[in-house]
């Protein structure tokens, strides 16, 4: 493991304490048992989070093969470093940070990626966001099949620049806090906020084009 990994894992292990819900005690118990060498306990942690880690990895890397490598490497690294997880944060948050680090390394290594790298300063002027102002027609979950909606949402998210996409996925899909997202991506809090706003507005714009209510008088031209 290199120095960057060490920093990432230390940051993750030192994350701020969070309140634990009913499921959290079970998670910590599983971690304790896994630390003591219980293979079944770590397998249970994998079962709980494998889908979300794979989805996160796919969204960051935009590559199926890379995402599968990230999934495997993240769990391996988590297992190897379990002793450094002190239980001050949720295990899932710690695991996400490891997975994000792995996924970003894949993304940086891939020379074919021509979009903005995550650490490149970017324009944040609101005027660059075109605004489509239209109410949505009903509820997209009812209007489209699950598969259609899944494809629409994935296409929209994949069209974002990696720097926006990753922040959006961590904040709004994986529900990390602004502080956790900033630590995971090594960004300042204002940068996370600014990128999240632009990601949300760009996605809103893209989805509005598909979900907007058509004016009734359009029927006159049919």
């Amino acid at each position: 493991m290199d120095a960057a990994d060490d920093v990432n894992l230390d940051l993750a292990a030192g994350a701020e304490a969070q309140s634990s819900g009913p499921g959290e005690t079970g998670e910590l118990e599983l971690v304790q048992r896994a630390k003591a060498g219980d293979v079944g306990a770590f397998s249970e942690l994998i079962n709980r989070y494998e889908r979300r880690i794979l989805r996160l990895a796919k969204r960051i890397t935009q590559n199926e093969e890379d995402a599968e490598d990230v999934l495997q490497d993240a769990f391996l690294k988590a297992y190897e470093n379990l002793d450094r997880f002190q239980g001050n944060s949720k295990f899932y948050t710690w695991l996400v940070r490891i997975a994000v680090n792995e996924a970003l390394m894949k993304l940086r290594k891939r020379k074919s990626d021509r979009t903005l790298p995550l650490d490149e300063p970017m324009e944040t002027g609101e005027e660059t966001v075109q605004r489509e102002i239209a109410v949505w027609e009903g509820n997209p979950e009812q209007k489209y099949s699950q598969e259609e909606l899944h494809n629409i949402l994935e296409d929209a998210i994949q069209s974002l620049a990696p720097s926006y996409r990753t922040v959006f996925v961590l904040r709004d899909v994986e529900e990390l806090s602004t502080e956790e997202t900033a630590a995971a991506l090594d960004l300042s809090i204002p940068a996370v906020k600014s990128r999240l706003l632009r990601a949300r507005l760009q996605l809103r714009e893209k989805l509005t084009r598909l979900f907007k209510k058509q004016p009734e008088d359009m029927l006159a031209y049919l």
């Binding site: 979300r52 102002i133 959006f168």
Partner: peptide, 19 residues
Amino acid sequence: VVADTTKKTVNVYKGMEAQ
């Protein structure tokens, strides 16, 4: 409309199940 549709955008992604 911007507030309403941005809120719906965030919610529709939150509601997605991982495969």
